[in-house]
Design a binder for these strands. Structure first.
Length: 553
RNA sequence: GGUCCUGUAGCUCAGCUGGAUAGAGCGUCUGCCUCCUAAGCAGAAAGUCACUGGUUCGACUCCAGUCAGGAUCACCA
């Protein structure tokens, strides 16, 4: 990458200064080379002189002029230098350095931007993990897309990614689900029924009841056992959930059933191990975990006086199993309502001898929905929540993905349905996709006119006029992916693409590519190389985010 | 009350490891289609980066405190 090559040059100049006794090596590694925010301040700049000034107690501009003298000797990529502001050294590169990016993109094609920084590290991304009690709500939607985007980014950067969905289909929640279904089953047949006090009130329960009636008629009317109802509900709800996920092109490598932790004895063995370490004790007929000895304020119950474990115990056991399955990095994507469980799980992991630093929890804040300029009130209990399916029906998968990725996880996300539904303008999703479509259109046109899109090596790229912004963006694409991936921040890719689209649309209006009367053929050919490269970056960027790159709109 | 997140333009939000004159989209206002897609472009107006201190050559960014909003503090998951 360009910045890395430049950094090498800067570092060797720094060393030259040390060797020639101009300054000491105490500033080594403390300075940086970065892209200035404003135009006219160079392609890159370094703060070395300012960093050194503090350490060496010298005038920063004096150091800067010495540095400029050293840097000026480079003929490979530096065109000119200037000292600015408090002591920045601004570095202007030769245009040919940027133009070469087009070769790189053309050569790499669909894999441009992919890297191997992940070194095949085994990463487990756990996300969604919604229990089968109803259709996915928009809160789950955010999590599904955030988790999937993180997984895709990590794959792109050379990680060995495994996607897992953790669920529980036993226990009180499921009993209530079964009882709710039974009540609807009886209601539909005009028989007396009692609906559970905290039952699931959603319409979908009627659908489940109806399918039981269709299949078995009134055979279950006198069933004492709630299991057939629960089972049917779980089956249909899971089918519904995976259907919703499939519509967004989200798949999992594994669905991990909490119950298997009991069957395989992992729950018992965790308690046993903690007990051996003296971290467990009995009080009030319950079993407590000494989390206070692990940095927390108070101890927590892991087995209730009824003999049933609390949710913490299987959570801890589950994470131990993740470690035992030899993953190097565990990523949990949760809603912010799970915040209280995080310290408990990490305490458990630590107590069992695993490194909690290998667990990264991505907590995302809540989602609100705005329709007709007003906040839509949602309640899970009353089943007045909006489902992901409904959103998909209204605006389609690309828009849903884009909007859910647009904000960093830490921010609350307001899904503006009015804006999302606008298909004609103002919608950032189309702004980006339109960029790709426009470029495709130009390439189609070139083919129609029998203009061959030459290999970048044959075209005279020095004929490109004002392509700097675009070339720099293209060149920074791999770094953008890397930072978004390693920081688990997909929203940065969205912003990257929006910026690229802005630059492209601006260029498009300023410079025509094909015009046989006004534009010389070799200029057209050079611009077609640029067009092809930008199109490739759009396509790769959209693909990495799980969105489509339409060739026409 | 404790813990975590948030507070940046009228609205919704970026601002990555501190860097030069604070950024985008929407909204508002003014222009631009005999021309590769106007789902676009060019320009204008719009800010006490919640507040107060501190750290330093330099703070939206780091630290402490205050205020406001959200999440969470079970032998529910």
């Amino acid at each position: 990458m360009i910045i890395e090559q430049l950094l090498e040059i800067v570092e060797s100049c720094f060393k030259t200064g040390v060797n020639e006794d101009k300054w000491s090596d105490r500033a080594a590694g403390k300075y940086s080379v970065e892209v200035p925010k404003r135009e006219g301040q160079g392609d890159f700049s370094t703060n070395m002189a300012m960093v050194m000034a503090g350490i060496e107690k010298k005038n920063p501009r004096e150091i800067a002029s010495q540095l400029v003298e050293y840097l000026g000797k480079d003929e490979t990529m530096i065109e000119r230098l200037e000292i600015a502001g408090p002591g920045f050294v601004n570095i202007f590169l030769k245009p040919s350095v940027w133009q070469k990016v087009l070769h790189t993109v053309a050569k790499a094609g669909d894999s441009y931007g992919h890297s191997t920084v992940g070194r095949n590290e085994k990463v487990l991304v756990e996300f969604v993990s919604a229990n089968p009690t109803g259709p996915l709500s928009i809160g789950h939607g955010r999590q599904a897309i955030l988790g999937d985007a993180i997984a895709r980014l990590l794959e792109t950067t050379g990680h060995d990614v495994f996607r897992e969905y953790y669920f529980n289909d036993a226990g009180r929640q499921m009993r209530v689900l079964g009882e709710s279904t039974r009540a609807r089953y009886l209601e539909r047949q005009d028989l007396p029924f009692t609906f559970p006090e905290d039952g699931y009130q959603g319409e979908y329960i009627y659908d489940i009841a109806q399918s039981l009636i269709d299949e078995q008629g009134d055979a279950l009317v006198n069933s004492e056992d709630v299991k057939p109802f629960t089972k049917k509900a779980v089956d249909l709800i899971f089918k519904d959930i995976s259907g919703t996920l499939a519509r967004m092109d989200i798949t999992f490598d594994n669905y991990y059933n909490e119950h298997s932790l009991y069957d395989d004895g992992h729950i018992d063995s965790v308690v046993k191990e903690l007990r051996e370490k003296g971290l467990v004790y009995e009080k009030d007929d319950a079993v407590w975990f000494k989390t206070s000895e692990l940095g927390q304020e108070q101890d927590r119950v892991i087995i209730k006086s009824s003999g049933e474990p609390t949710y913490r115990l299987p959570d801890i056991a589950y994470h131990r199993e993740k470690f035992r399955r030899n993953f190097d990095w565990l990523i949990d994507v949760f809603g912010s309502d799970h915040i209280a469980t995080v310290p408990d799980v990490l305490s458990g992991v630590k107590a069992l001898g695993y490194d909690p630093d290998k667990v990264t929890v991505v907590l995302h804040q809540f989602v609100t929905l705005t329709r007709d300029g007003k906040l839509v009130k949602m309640s899970t209990r009353k089943a007045t929540f909006v489902t992901v399916d409904e959103l998909l029906d209204e605006v389609g998968a690309d828009v849903v993905r884009f909007y859910f990725m647009m904000r960093k996880a830490d921010s609350q996300l307001d899904f503006d349905l009015d804006l999302a539904k606008k298909q004609e303008k103002d919608n950032p999703v189309y702004y980006v996709q339109y960029g790709h479509a426009r470029l495709c259109s130009i390439l189609r046109r070139a083919t129609e006119m029998n203009i061959e899109v030459k290999d970048t090596g044959e075209a005279d790229l020095s004929l490109l006029v004002e392509p700097e912004e675009l070339l720099k963006s293209i060149a920074s694409f791999p770094a953008a992916i890397e930072s978004a991936a390693l920081d688990l921040a997909p929203h940065r890719m969205i912003f990257f693409l929006m910026e690229l689209a802005g630059e492209l649309h601006s260029y498009y209006n300023k410079h025509k590519v094909i015009d046989q009367e006004k534009i010389p053929l070799d200029v057209t050919r050079a611009r077609l190389c640029l067009v092809a490269a930008v199109r490739q970056v759009f396509k790769n960027g959209l693909t990495i985010l799980g969105m489509s790159a339409p060739e026409s709109m």
